[in-house]
């Protein structure tokens, strides 16, 4: 009996706090019908925001993917002093507010920053332009792949790699043929989370972007601009795309978890 009361309370909690907001996004987006929805998405500024979001993700995610694999290899396959300091430093972007993540790049590259005046003399515009957005996104999505791979590779140990090396494989061959297949699901998982965050990042990008419509607006920023103009349907329409991205990410995540046997175990009564 108590059990069902607890289950009910939990379902109510999840329903109120998670399901309702999700449903609201789509309900508000379609409030004026499907045609207004499509028109909002076909708007040139919206399309350029979508394009910019995809571009930024296409740069940030592969870079952080490579970094994550490299860092996980260094940390998991070797013993050295200072390893836990390194892991803490890699986790650093997680504990920093997104706004501060943007602020530090403004302090570095802005017109009053360290490198800003020098770079702008050379003609490089970083803050209030796309490179700044890419940098800020790289910062906030930095740890995802590494955090996923490090425990996985530590768990897998070095036996298989050592065996391969003994049998005559070169370093690269060992990596491609032994390590990579072992970590592929963790890698995919990390890339998924990294991508979701890269496309959805708001605070850090908001600080560095300058909000120039059609040029330096990513999708989340475009959502904000439309919302502040009281153009609710268009705002929710673009937001619904992001919400769909989140749902796809979650489904893929669940599929991978199911595949590798993680997630909720069967035990229950």
């Amino acid at each position: 009996m108590v059990r069902w009361i607890l289950i009910l309370i939990s379902l109510l909690f999840v329903g109120t706090f998670i399901v309702l907001p999700l449903v609201t996004v789509f309900a508000e987006a379609l409030r004026q019908g499907a045609r207004a929805y499509v028109a909002a998405l076909a708007d040139p500024d919206a399309l350029s925001a979508i394009g910019l979001t995809l571009t930024v993700a296409a740069i940030a995610v592969p870079l952080n993917l490579v970094f994550g694999v490299v860092a996980a290899w260094a940390i998991a396959k070797f013993e050295f002093r200072g390893k836990s300091l390194l892991i803490t430093l890699i986790d650093l972007p997680f504990s920093v507010s997104p706004v501060i993540s943007g602020l530090i790049y403004v302090l570095l590259f802005g017109l009053q920053g360290w490198l800003g005046p020098f770079l702008s003399e050379q003609g490089f515009k970083i803050i209030f332009a796309v490179p700044g957005i890419v940098l800020a996104t790289i910062f906030v999505t930095f740890p995802f792949v590494a955090r996923e791979l490090i425990p996985l590779m530590q768990e897998q140990g070095t036996d298989e790699e050592e065996a391969a090396l003994v049998l005559g494989a070169s370093g690269w061959q060992t990596f491609w043929r032994v390590t990579l297949p072992n970590i592929r699901w963790g890698l995919l998982y990390g890339v998924l989370l990294c991508n979701a965050r890269a496309m959805g990042e708001f605070g850090a990008v908001s600080v560095v972007s300058g909000h120039i419509r059609g040029l330096t607006n990513t999708m989340p920023l475009h959502v904000e601009i439309l919302y502040n103009e009281y153009n609710f349907v268009a705002s929710f329409a673009v937001a619904s795309l992001l919400a769909l991205l989140a749902l796809v990410t979650l489904s893929a995540k669940s599929a991978i978890e199911w595949k590798i046997g993680r997630g909720l175990k069967g035990r229950g009564h």
Binding site: P21, E28, M199, G200, M219, P220, L221, S235, T249
Partner: peptide, 10 residues
């Protein structure tokens, strides 16, 4: 997984 701006307006 949901972008913070989307959560905010929702």
């Amino acid at each position: 997984a949901l972008p913070t701006a989307v959560a905010g307006i929702a």
